[in-house]
Design a protein around this nucleic acid. Sequence first.
DNA 1: GGAGCAGTCTTTTTT
DNA 2: AGACTGCTCC
Length: 821
Amino acid sequence: MNRFDDDIGESDAFEAAASRPLSARAMAARPTPYLDGLNPEQRRAVETLDGPVLMLAGAGTGKTRALTARIAHLLLSGTARPNEILAVTFTNKAAREMKTRVANLMGQPVEGMPWLGTFHAICVKLLRRHAELAGLKSNFTILDTDDQVRLMKQLINAAEIDEKRWPARQLAGIIDGWKNRALTPDKVPAADAGAFNRRGPELYAHYQSRLRDLNAVDFGDLLLHMVTIFQAHPDLLGQYQRWFRYILVDEYQDTNVAQYLWLRLLAQGHSNICVVGDDDQSIYGWRGAEVGNILRFEKDFPGAQVIRLEQNYRSTGHILAAASGVIAGNKGRLGKTLWTDGEDGHKVRLIGHWDGDEEARWVGEEIEAMARGTRGMDPVSPDHMAILVRASHQMRAFEDRFLTIGLPYRVIGGPRFYERLEIRDAMAYFRLVVSPDDDLAFERVVNTPKRGLGDKAQQSIQKIARANGVSLVDGARLAVETGLIGGKGAKELRSFVHGLARWRDLMLGGLRPVGPGADLIDDDLIEEDRPVRKISHIELAEKILDESGYTAMWQNDKTPEAPGRLENLKELVKALEGFENLQGFLEHVSLIMDNEQDGEDPKVTLMTLHAAKGLEFPAVFLPGWEDGLFPSQRAMDEEGVKGLEEERRLAYVGITRAERVCTVSFAGNRRVYGQWQSQMPSRFIDELPEDHVEVLTPSGLHGHSGMGASASPMAGMMAGSDLHAQAARADVYNSPGWRRLQTNQTRPGLRQPSEARHMTIDAEAISAFAIDDRVFHQKFGYGTVTSVEGDKLGIAFDKAGEKHVVARFLVSADAADDVPF
DNA sequence: GGAGCAGTCTTTTTT
DNA sequence: AGACTGCTCC
């Protein structure tokens, strides 16, 4: 089942509309409003329609604006019709934003831009049209990483390789790498022959043929198959070259070899290709992106016009100067000089702390202070603040701290909604109902919840299915009918198989499918033929999850995560509302992944630097600037200078996210894999130009006054640059913090607008808990109240130990037990 | 089939 | 430290 953004459904009628030229009236009524307010470079980027164009767009220089205006210009000037423009992005989010913004610029709904989408979505669409050229049927399934790995595990075992020494994950990584480089099994270079204990190339070939048998592809295949098809069928390529008269590519610095080849094939001929990107923001080298693609553009496309967008509309002068200073350390850049005619603003603030906990504590207080308005700055809403970390595990210290002080935050990234265990399980059930021959889905849930069907039973099912050349579901049915599976599993398996059949019947409205493709049964037909009340897909989904015992499994689970998982399942069912049926939902499930529920309290954002690319915040915190953490030791070890430069670009991305205030911090000591280590401040701190940096004095409220002493790790920090020394010394002289401490203590409330509301909630919460009450906390799980001080409760958590927590993050344990579904 | 234990590993992430 | 995996033993 295809679970990713795949727009094949909207094809023909939609494209017919898209190919209609714009009405004369629309043209006449619209002069060129999309050009208003563009600076000369942007304008040039918009108006240079023919031939190759490289738009080098620095951070915050209005790149999306220029890109969307360019599309509007192509359309409104009558140069191209909507369906003649191929516009590629990396993420669905970017594609969606572009669609919306083009529509806004045009002042009229865009009648379909069928070829505006992600590389993958566009390739899916193309590949469904030409699947037979890749030995597939057009209804092929797209496997996710999970399925991929499971498949490879089977192949590794079949090849009698010790899966312990040679894990499937690693093989998946290797094969992915080859696919990123557009290498089919026969093209794997000799240099890579040794991969995976010399069995890599062979396993790759097996894997590909297995995929073909399953009528399935993985993500890498989408590009790879299209490149292969285009290379092998020049006539077909020619058609598309004529069809896509104008090509636009966003974030070109992130393209991998396969994407590059695909674009180059399509652009050959007219060369009307406009790529937009910033070599300084290339941070995905580790997953196959080739900065070289953008650096080489002028060679690849002779006569390319290079347009630099350098006027920055986002950040203050000091912030830009600091970012420029850092990135200047990289060699082999195309080179840009960002400038602004705005004010200098605040210098980048730098502060050192004793350890990671102290850093988190300080950031928490600083956020509260900034929300109130301090140091002559206007108050900044927590919504407008972000903490950007190098690695996601760094978030933990902040989460713990914010939970304790009751500072609302939101985490972006982490496992995406659809990647979560319970969601994948639920989806596997849906897949199995929609397409009963989805063997991978069957394997996933046949024994989830536990049905007493272990390896042995599953092997019997496999065997009988193979012997009869049927799917696993049918195999299971046979096994049940022939009594091949005995013991307690038999009964469970029977009810599982019957359940699947029953749910499928319900989905089809009581009719049995007639043949392939019969899934899509006409509603009218059902009404006339047999008046069955058709159960809604939402009811059906709930029924499936309930009757399969899946919901009950989590309800009976007492681990702290269980209630959250039930929540997620509810959310999943709710997400179904936006779709016509289960099939449609499965096709488009990628859309729910950025289902950000907003509109609640203002919250601070916590995310990785990678996730922050493309975003901006008035105030940004960049903690953990310590050598080994950032730049990451691993990046430097594995990739050397190349890795370091990518880390430096990450620093550049981080700083340039800030509009008005950017605060860099580091800690002298940090727990690394459970081990305390003393840390050296990041080398990137040395690279911050001093003129644009202000060293802050930490309050040292909870600090270690005696740390001036000899062998402390802080002494190591003092040995570094002037900036280190200042920041480190500042931690020692901690008196100025007292004033703020006093202020804080007399006015504990901080979020003025909602203070009253919180007070009420707190009051209720306090009265709700007493010592020895059993409580539940979303993050720490179950525990017992040990102390009550105002709204702060001491809790002995069963798993997480003693913690002090604000009352409103707790619910009574009884309430947590019966999370309804 | 499942509980419990020992050994391993630990950056970033979209589709 | 903590999560995850695979293995042993019941």
